[in-house]
């Protein structure tokens, strides 16, 4: 790529050419990690998914049986549906709220950094601690939410055990927890917008709403794209909340893909079955990410 540095190139050699030997040294840990912990195991997951294996007896090759079994497994279908529902609701909603907040927070007001910190604190706290409080907030008997609703005359709800309310309750908590990270990315992007552009929009007489839509929003699309990727990938990994807030058995109303994998792999020790589900998770994330990256041509404006 870079134009000639012949002295260096002659000295190099090795399988990677150029400064290959040095590169091999620096990359050794990463290459081992790729082979045994991340990229390699993706292929291993595929191989294991073709077997029936409880770890106690040797694996038996069963072909695609695990995959056909998954498709007729009610619990797996529910996990799929819940994961999609979680993604489709929480990602756009989380981004929209964060966008509005970032616009509002992007100004010089005394104490603004304190407010920003408030929005960011949930991001750094563990989901288990957060889920414990929310379990208490959502408590059907005398949780904070029901008590607050009682003041305005709404009857108490079983937020976590009512199948129709459980998933929305978890989504609300997750949006609350993840808001800060998107806000920070948006704020950083907003601070990168040249003041002249905003001034020019002011001269045109654009009001705050029009200004936001026609000037700021297009400039923020790279940041929106990036936060979208993060939220999308994160949303397919929902586990901690489910593990702490609701034990998905027996209602199934809140089981997610990762919980399904965890349960089959590490509670029932059905390694083949869990691997098949993992591989489907991988395909779904890959497909979503590919579509999302492909879509960026249509709506992301890089300067």
């Amino acid at each position: 790529m870079t134009v000639g540095r012949p002295a260096v190139r002659r000295r190099g050699g090795g399988p990677l050419g150029g400064e290959g030997r040095w590169a091999l040294l620096f990359l050794a840990p990463t290459l081992i990690g790729l082979a045994v912990l991340s990229a390699g195991p993706i292929l291993a997951t595929l191989a294991i998914s073709l077997t029936s294996w409880d770890l106690l007896t040797p694996p038996k090759l069963v072909g695609l049986d695990n995959f056909t079994a998954l498709l007729s497994d009610d619990r797996f279908m529910k996990a799929l549906r819940n994961t999609f529902f979680f993604t489709i609701v929480s990602v756009p909603l989380g981004l929209a709220i964060a966008y509005g907040l970032a616009l509002a927070l992007n100004q010089r007001i005394r104490g603004i950094s304190f407010i920003r910190t408030a929005y960011f604190l949930p991001v750094v706290t563990s989901t288990i601690a957060i889920a414990l409080v929310w379990q208490w907030i959502y408590n059907a008997d005398s949780g904070l939410l029901n008590q607050a609703l009682e003041v305005v005359g709404v009857s108490p709800q079983k937020w976590l055990s009512n199948p129709t309310l459980a998933m929305p309750s978890i989504i609300a908590m997750s949006i609350w927890q993840g808001l800060g990270i998107n806000v920070i990315i948006f704020l950083a992007a907003l601070q990168g917008i040249p003041q002249e552009l905003i001034d020019a929009a002011n001269v045109d007489g654009a009001g705050p709403w029009a200004r936001s839509r026609s000037v700021i929003l297009p400039l923020l699309t790279p940041a929106i794209f990036f936060t979208g990727v993060l939220s999308l990938i994160g949303s397919f990994q929902v586990f901690d909340q489910i593990f702490v807030l609701v034990k998905p058995r027996p209602t199934d109303a809140t089981i997610t893909l990762v919980y399904f994998i965890y349960e089959n792999g590490f509670k029932f020790f059905k390694m083949g079955y869990a691997s098949a589900a993992s591989w489907i998770l991988f395909l779904i994330v890959a497909a979503f990410t590919a579509i999302y990256f492909w879509s960026q041509k249509r709506w992301v404006h890089y300067q």
């Binding site: 195991p41 993706i42 997951t45 990762v258 792999g265 590490f266 993992s278 998770l281 994330v285």
Partner: peptide, 20 residues
């Protein structure tokens, strides 16, 4: 390749890692 693994949820490899 490394960037691709950034996108893969680590839960996908829970089982092979456990076996390893």
């Amino acid at each position: 390749l490394l960037l691709v693994t950034l996108i893969i949820p680590f839960q996908v490899v829970l089982v092979p890692n456990f076996i390893l």
